[in-house]
């Protein structure tokens, strides 16, 4: 867990717990100063969770480690492209991991995603949200996901974390494709009030 409160002083470790680090600040230290220590902290913060996600793709431990390395390497190189308009750092890093999955596991072009970046960068409808609010949003969405009925949460996780297509999910669960989609639709309907708070 990272702190949701931004501080303008250097975060100090609390007694007996992990240091409080703000991932947005780490990203800006990487972007502006190529600060390796900031990268190491971001790695310690997110690599174990990224590894868990990569293991869900059927990757063995070694491949999962490689994919985590690739993700953090991409974060290092692209940190200057991050802005709060793109969401919380963890959301932005999810999209980086996703684009990597498309390229390295599906062996498909991820340019349809990357070529949108320029449009987002010049978007005339910024959310106006600060990082701290974006991180609060992530916490709220996390809580909302926990309240979904099991069958809805299952299809959402299989799609976003296990990288399964709707057809894959249909085959794996032995349910019609239409049922996969209706569960996703219901899940979105339940998450909607939280997600649309973004506006």
């Amino acid at each position: 867990m990272y702190a949701v409160v931004m501080s303008d002083t250097t975060p100090q470790p609390a007694h007996g717990t992990a240091p409080i680090v703000d991932p947005a600040e780490l990203l800006s230290r990487i972007a502006e100063q190529k600060d390796r220590q900031a990268l190491a902290e971001l790695f310690r913060l997110l690599a174990p969770r990224l590894k868990s996600m990569m293991l869900k793709l059927g990757a063995d431990s070694a491949l999962a480690e490689d994919l985590v390395q690739e993700t953090l390497l991409a974060v290092w190189r692209k940190a200057h492209l991050y802005s709060p308009e793109r969401g919380a750092p963890v959301t932005w890093i999810f999209t980086i991991a996703r684009n990597l999955r498309i390229d390295q596991l599906r062996r498909l072009s991820n340019k349809p995603y990357e070529d949108l970046d320029g449009i987002d960068a010049t978007d005339d409808t910024p959310t106006g949200l600060q990082v701290v609010e974006q991180q609060q949003m992530v916490s709220r969405v996390k809580s909302a996901l926990e309240t979904l009925p099991d069958d809805q949460r299952q299809v959402v996780k299989l799609s976003f974390l296990n990288d399964m297509t709707h057809s894959d999910i249909s085959a794996a669960l032995g349910i019609p494709l239409g049922t996969v989609k209706s569960r996703l639709r219901l899940a979105y309907g339940r998450l909607r009030p939280v997600l649309e708070d973004l506006q």
Binding site: A47, P48, S52, V68, F94, V138, S139, L195
Partner: peptide, 25 residues
């Protein structure tokens, strides 16, 4: 729809945030 996608991307962000931690080498 660009705004809509930003909202949906939050689902992936929240799921990653909620992942358990698996030790790295």
């Amino acid at each position: 729809c660009r705004e809509q996608i930003k909202r949906i991307d939050l689902i992936g962000g929240a799921l990653l945030d909620a992942e358990e931690e698996v030790p790295v080498e």
